[in-house]
């Protein structure tokens, strides 16, 4: 199993049980900084549960999670809340606030967490929208007036607003048409490159094997709450793990 020094996320012996259902089983998993790491797995494998632990939204039944060198289990709720500003997250359906325009969605975290003036916030938001490829005529449209792909772009702009150290993508391409899927994948790569100097780490949860092989640096395969395989993307399709082969050839 791969392990890294100075990892962005370091998970040790993580077990999570809901009632009598153990969803994550003694997981050990390091995610290196400044890389794109994808977690693959069948539905119900525990991917979202794992992601929620990294975000500190769920507490482990046992084990520890360190993010950027800080042990989450030592933080109280307020500290966890503060700490979440190190994360940016792109949700499956973008999760834009539907009563806010595109630019106000991007401005939202800036208004909440910075002391910038209104003018600075709007300038910065417009800049972010430009950088994810939303042209100015769409800045003042409501999410309902945007296409699925554009919503994803705006969602990405919002996630990047506070300059996250870790970007999380929850099934970024599930439910999109092939062209938009390509576009979102390109966007993930270009975002990762654009923020590389800041050492931004990208974590992707996905079902899409082909795209994953192309855009990731490392791939983990989660099955029934255990990491079955964790390899550099270039070696992943040579995995000798039966389940991985089954998943790839699905």
């Amino acid at each position: 199993m791969l392990s890294f020094d100075n990892a962005a996320v370091s998970i040790k012996d993580l077990t999570k049980t809901f009632g009598d259902h153990t969803v994550l089983k003694n997981l050990n998993f390091d995610i290196p900084r400044n890389k794109i790491v994808t977690i693959l797995g069948f539905s119900g494998a525990g991917k979202s549960t794992l992601l929620k632990h990294i975000l500190g939204l769920l507490q482990p039944t046992s084990g520890t999670i360190s993010v950027l060198g800080k042990d989450l289990s030592h933080m109280d709720r307020m500290e966890l809340r503060e700490f979440r500003r190190h994360f940016g997250m792109l949700f499956q359906y973008a999760a834009l606030f539907d009563s806010f325009t595109a630019i106000e969605n991007v401005a939202f975290p800036l208004r909440e967490f910075t002391k910038l003036t209104n003018k600075e916030i709007l300038e910065k938001s417009a800049g972010l929208l430009d950088s994810v490829g939303i042209d100015p005529i769409s800045h003042h449209k409501l999410p309902s007036e945007l296409s699925g792909g554009m919503r994803k772009r705006v969602g990405l702009g919002r996630a990047l607003a506070l300059g996250p150290d870790i970007m999380l993508y929850d099934e970024p391409t599930t439910g999109l048409d092939p062209i938009t899927t390509n576009m979102v994948n390109e966007l993930i790569v270009s975002t990762s490159m654009q923020y590389a100097d800041r050492g931004m780490t990208s974590i992707i949860i996905s079902h899409d094997v082909k795209a994953t092989l192309r855009i990731s640096d490392y791939i983990a395969f989660l099955h029934q709450g255990m990491i079955e395989e964790y390899l550099p993307a270039s070696e992943f399709h040579n995995s000798t793990n039966k389940l991985v082969q089954e998943f790839i050839n699905l």
Binding site: R81, R84, Q92, Y93, A95, D98
Partner: peptide
């Protein structure tokens, strides 16, 4: 309810807003 099913509530929580 709409915000809940479209993950807007999660988006708030992830940003650290209760």
């Amino acid at each position: 309810g709409t915000m809940k099913v479209t993950e807007q509530v999660d988006a708030l929580e992830v940003m650290g807003i209760n």
